[in-house]
Design a binder for these strands. Structure first.
Lengths: 191, 191
DNA sequence: GATTTACGCTACCTTAGGTATCGATACCTC
DNA sequence: GAGGTATCGATACCTAAGGTAGCGTAAATC
């Protein structure tokens, strides 16, 4: 649906539009914030007509979700044991949220999804679901614990971003890693 | 500013308007979600003119913040030791977010605040600040740890609400309490 | 060269936040 | 009781922004 590179276009799909729009979306959101990053402005920044964007993505929210999916890429699940895996995942998402535009965009779509059930389905299904599955397979925890893990980590990062406008600092990310690991990995007891 | 009961009105301030508007705000948000709960609809539900609302609150966000402040009330910091205090605070805010309308309204303003610096100031200063101070005094933790505590707890609750549309279930609240306490209160080590 | 397809452009619709104005009504003071 | 004052309700309005429709056009494919 939203992937324009499929179907072998006979006309002139102007290769590279998607990448340009994604870049324009992030930079515009970074500059103006999510709400002020209107589709008109994003289109202008991408050197593209507004209608072209709406031909490829049904809503602004869907565009941003796809943009985030592209910006995030796959979770780098590095490490041999569970603790290392979880720590790397937390530090990865924290770093991503800290990238200019990404954090604002993420918080923004999330915001919109709160009162928009359709967007919520897109956000949860298209963005969260792949990472949920990857984490579940890698960590071997039950579904409910994976969802809880995501709630705590992503929730804390977004809350900091939303309340202060700035991403979480390094020391707090470390605290987050310690807190989550001590819970999932059996306590901070040195013995 | 937003408190109409001060100043001894010479005219006819029609006592009870604030309470009616608050109730209408929560019920409308509960029914339709934050975005669809327009000021027009809230005004209609409260039996009040839209202009009356804008005479008392500068923006929709400010109205909802005041409404939440009223709905939350003071934190009941019960318990003798720190662990009990933290647990009661977590369960209190979790229960509040679970009340019909409150969670949606909270997630909604939070959302708006992401791309609205003025609203962010109102939200952080008027809603979060009192609780931050109360927690700091009661727990005796440094400011950064209190903010981190709030980020984790409120962030997780809002993330669950935003992603699923439903408040966090009891078992997850319990997990949240355990996780936070084991971190702030020295590990789950039985020794 | 004809068809197909996506693009740019312009114009437009709708919703919703927020403002301005005016007349009515209640209260308080004199 | 008369007059001033402040708030309320109603209507009308402005603006920004999401989203749509229609038209002409440029480019690949056949």
């Amino acid at each position: 649906m939203t992937s324009p590179t499929s179907g072998r276009p006979p006309g002139r799909p102007r290769a590279g539009v998607t990448a340009e729009v994604f870049a324009a979306t992030l930079s515009t959101v970074h500059e103006l914030g999510y709400a002020r990053a209107t589709v008109d402005r994003i289109a202008a920044a991408a050197g593209v007509a507004k209608t072209t964007i709406y031909r490829r993505w049904p809503t602004k929210g869907a565009l941003v979700v796809d943009c985030l999916l592209d910006a995030f890429g796959p979770v780098p699940l590095e490490g041999t044991d569970r603790a290392e895996l979880m720590a790397s995942a937390i530090r990865w998402i924290a770093a991503k949220v800290g990238e200019p535009g990404v954090g604002d965009a993420f918080a923004g779509v999330f915001s919109d999804a709160v009162s928009d059930p359709e967007l919520r389905v897109i956000l949860a299904g298209r963005l969260q679901e792949p990472y949920r599955l990857a984490l579940r397979d890698a960590l071997g925890e039950p579904d409910s614990r994976i969802l809880f893990f995501i709630d705590v980590v992503v929730g804390a990062l977004l809350h900091r971003m939303g309340m202060t406008g700035e991403p979480m600092v390094e020391s707090d990310v470390t605290a987050l890693v310690e807190m989550v690991l001590s819970y999932y990995d059996g306590g901070t007891c040195p013995a």
